[in-house]
């Protein structure tokens, strides 16, 4: 009997070995197309993504500087959407970042929480900022304009470092920021304003195929934020709530920047201790 089990186990391992070999061959073919030298000696894919991101940033910067106060620019693409707004004290309105993905538009769409601009943003919105928050932000600034930029990435393709310990879990990611002048590059200075703003970002996570689907286990995942694309380690500046019904993670964050949900045991533990401080102490003393 035990011999039979061993044979089955051997066959199982043999097929596993073959599938891994096939995957390695496939990876080798894929890498041949990308190459190894011109983008970055360390990681060609991240190098390629960083060049792409820098071109995209240049284009967005040019577009942002070209728009006039009161104007909104929305660029919808298959894999990423960009939104740029300029708002003045005479023209304060809420900002809603919408996910145009039609697959998300389902009937009986239920939310476990509401976005910060519930009356104005649709149920498909990824982020909403209330006009009162923008108004308070403008009061604290010499400039009467507020600029908003966001880029919703609808796949796992991001210019950030990943490895065996850290992979991107969410299927979407949002890069966003508020400026207080006309320049997009003046983003990410909210800390100096003494404004306590929590941004609520909704990101898509893989849908469970069935109850036992371990590939969608959220146990070791957490929402993190990158202030710069070149940053190696992100900030665990969000609390993470998981919405199984809608296959979404709700990241409540106190910073701006690229917000994404990653699978990383160490970062996830930091996130859990911040979100549930009781986990850090021994309750069974």
């Amino acid at each position: 009997m035990s011999k039979k089990i061993n044979i089955f186990s051997l066959i199982k391992n043999f097929f596993l070995f073959i599938s891994i070999i096939l995957l390695i061959i496939q990876l080798h073919i894929n890498f041949q197309n990308i190459g190894t030298t011109n983008f970055s000696d360390k990681d060609p894919l991240v190098g390629m993504l960083k060049i792409l991101q820098s071109i995209l940033d240049t284009l967005n910067e040019k577009l942002f500087n070209n728009i006039i106060v009161g104007q909104t620019i929305l660029v919808i693409n298959e894999n990423f959407d960009a939104q740029m707004n300029k708002i003045s004290t005479n023209n304060i309105k809420s900002i809603c970042v919408s996910n145009s993905d039609s697959k998300l538009k389902r009937k009986n769409f239920k939310r476990i929480r509401r976005l910060q601009a519930p009356e104005r943003c649709s149920s498909d919105s990824v982020l909403g900022i209330d006009p009162n928050i923008l108004s308070n932000l403008m009061k604290n600034q010499t400039s009467s304009n507020v600029g908003f930029y966001s880029q919703l990435n609808k796949n796992k393709n991001l210019p950030i470092d990943t490895n065996a310990e850290r992979t991107i879990f969410s299927e979407s990611a949002l890069d966003f920021g508020l400026s207080t002048g006309d320049k997009k590059n003046q983003f990410r200075n909210l800390n100096t304003n003494n404004l306590n703003i929590n941004f609520e970002i909704r990101l898509k996570i893989p849908r469970k195929k069935n109850e036992n689907d371990n590939s969608t286990n959220v146990g070791d995942t957490t929402c993190v934020q990158y202030q710069k694309a070149s940053e190696k380690d992100p900030d665990v500046s969000c609390v993470s709530w998981y919405d199984d019904l809608n296959s979404e993670v709700v990241c409540v964050c106190n910073k701006q920047g690229l917000t994404v949900n990653v699978a990383d045991k160490a970062l996830s533990n930091i996130g859990k201790l911040g979100q549930f401080p009781g986990l850090g102490s021994d309750l069974c003393k």
């Binding site: 995957l23 496939q26 990876l27 894929n30 890498f31 197309n33 990308i34 894919l45 390629m48 993504l49 792409l52 298959e78 894999n79 990423f80 796949n155 796992k156 393709n157 990943t162 992979t167 991107i168």
Partner: peptide
């Protein structure tokens, strides 16, 4: 181009 890189990343994942 983003999509192309994404396909590669999916293989790695």
């Amino acid at each position: 181009l983003n999509k192309k890189a994404g396909d590669q990343i999916q293989s790695i994942l």
